[in-house]
């Protein structure tokens, strides 16, 4: 074992940490760069707002955008209330016993289940058993189940970041437990809950496997009319045009990827800005 002198080992470790950081960033930057370089040329108002033409080799991607937005919107409307209520129960009411600990552990582990498993579960339960068919609502329910553990975990984090003393102060005045949660804990946890929700929207927008069997269609010539309609979805559409259709113009593929990427990045940015805004306004 060679003994380095302290100065040299300091320099060496610094270099090592720098290189590791650069290695982590480079792929992301390269991906974004390549996608923008190849895809930016097709992005136009028309590309975003018209139906595909010529066997998807031309025209726009409007139905895929609308499809993804409607699935994700439905999923969030389902997940957010359920997730927040569950988080409130677990964080504020549940006694710390074996059962609660198992439930909490299960929630954390559920977040690690592969998304294709959720997709198959959705196919079995929502599409076939509940006979919802391949539809927006079946896809949204599948995504909701997948996203619940994440929402619960972030909401619990937000709730427990509200100082315990606030609860004590409120309770000591004779205010009930629920009123304390409703009027002191929730308002102060809301920023954290909302940022978590936005981030999870960003995450599920790009999910392909869960909607593969439950919501997404190869091609639908019209926009969805009801939650029971099949839709096209951006990630699935991207998969199709890059693998299933011969002679697909490269720039349309990259353009579609760019739109999906921008959607996700925009939402992440909104979450970051929201977090900064709320942190500044926070009074404690």
């Amino acid at each position: 074992m060679i003994k380095l002198n302290p100065k040299l080992s300091q320099k060496f470790s610094y270099l090592l940490l720098c290189v590791a950081t650069i290695l982590a960033i480079v792929p992301v930057v390269v991906i974004i760069f390549i996608i923008i370089k190849n895809g930016a040329s097709v992005i136009s108002w028309e590309f975003l707002t018209s139906m595909p033409k010529n066997g998807m080799c031309g025209g726009g991607i409007l139905p895929a955008i609308v499809g993804t937005l409607s699935i994700v919107l439905c999923a969030v409307l389902i997940t957010l209330p359920i997730g927040v209520c569950a988080a409130i129960y677990l964080n504020e009411y549940a006694k710390d016993n074996l059962l609660t600990r198992i439930v909490k552990l299960a929630i954390v582990n559920l977040a690690g289940v592969p998304s294709v498993v959720y997709g198959l579960f959705g196919l079995g339960v929502f599409v076939m058993f509940l006979k919802l068919g391949v539809s927006i609502i079946a896809g949204a329910l599948t995504l909701s189940i997948m996203e619940l553990p994440v929402i619960i975990t972030t909401a619990r984090g937000a709730l427990s970041s509200v100082p315990y003393s606030f609860r004590e102060a409120s309770l000591s005045l004779g205010v009930s437990r629920w009123q304390t949660i409703r009027h002191v804990v929730l308002p102060n946890a809301l920023p954290g809950i909302l940022t978590g929700a936005i981030l999870s929207i960003a995450r599920i927008s790009g999910e392909t496997a869960p909607i593969l069997f439950t919501a997404a269609a190869f091609y639908v010539p019209h926009l969805p009319h009801s939650p029971l309609d099949q839709v096209m979805a951006l990630p699935y559409h991207l998969f199709i045009i890059s693998t299933q259709i011969p002679n697909m113009p490269k720039n349309i593929i990259y353009g579609t990827a760019l739109v999906l990427l921008m959607m996700v990045l925009t939402m992440s940015c909104v979450a970051i800005v929201a977090r900064i805004y709320f942190r500044k306004r926070r009074k404690w």
């Binding site: 102060a169 409120s170 309770l171 000591s172 005045l173 004779g174 205010v175």
Partner: peptide, 27 residues
């Protein structure tokens, strides 16, 4: 009911994160 009749002041002051007026009127 008990806590309404028996109030408590803690060691560290714990104002709730709202205005002075709202703090008083909260309970």
């Amino acid at each position: 009911d008990l806590r309404k009749r028996v109030g408590m002041l803690f060691a560290m002051p714990i104002p709730l994160p709202m205005s002075i007026y709202e703090n008083i009127i909260y309970a």
